[in-house]
């Protein structure tokens, strides 16, 4: 069941995102919340004029998951947060290809453990988990290229 976030809840979520990713996200549209009683809560972004009165399987796009207070954006969520996020890691195109094929990559620079927005030039690739000099891959299976790359 989806629940529309109230204005203050939306504002608070955006504030949390901006704090966590050191970004200046501003966004139009509704935020909808799902699985509120579970450990991981999913947030959807819906930009339609109004929610249609039909029994829905899915509404809008998955924007982020909130797990134990940590906000983990989807690729699309990361693309919104994207370019303004200071908490990001810049990769070259070869590394981007590895990330999008579902592989871990070495960290180009040392970072504190946690989630970072992954960028390659102007492209936002989604999110990666920095851990012990590696970026642990977070690309969903459904979004990985089928091309195989050797681990670098």
């Amino acid at each position: 069941m989806l629940r529309k976030l109230k204005k203050e809840e939306k504002d608070s979520l955006i504030e949390d995102i901006n704090l966590q990713y050191e970004s200046c996200l501003e966004i139009e549209g509704l935020f909808l919340s799902k699985d509120e009683k579970r450990e991981s809560k999913k947030i959807f972004l819906y930009t339609g004029e109004r929610i249609p009165d039909v029994p829905a399987e899915w509404t809008g796009i998955h924007f982020c998951t909130i797990r134990e207070g940590t906000i983990i954006p989807s690729i699309e969520g990361a693309q919104y947060i994207g370019q303004t996020a200071k908490k990001g890691i810049d990769l070259d195109y070869e590394q981007a290809k590895y990330v999008m094929s579902g592989r871990d990559v070495d960290m180009p620079e040392e970072k504190e453990k946690g989630y970072y927005i992954l960028r390659s030039g102007d492209d936002v690739l989604g999110i990666g988990l920095a851990d012990n000099k590696k970026i642990i891959n977070q690309t969903p299976k459904s979004r990985r290229t089928m091309q195989q790359y050797r681990t670098i």
């Binding site: 549209g29 972004l45 819906y46 930009t47 339609g48 004029e49 929610i51 249609p52 039909v54 029994p55 829905a56 399987e57 899915w58 509404t59 809008g60 796009i61 998955h62 989807s74 690729i75 699309e76 693309q79 459904s142 979004r143």
Partner: peptide
């Protein structure tokens, strides 16, 4: 097929879409 539909909607960033299955 709904699963494929949802994946493509998400990938496209089509945020004004509501998916129904009937």
């Amino acid at each position: 097929r709904v699963r494929a539909l949802v994946i493509n909607i998400q990938k496209a960033g089509a945020s004004n879409v509501t998916v129904t299955r009937r």
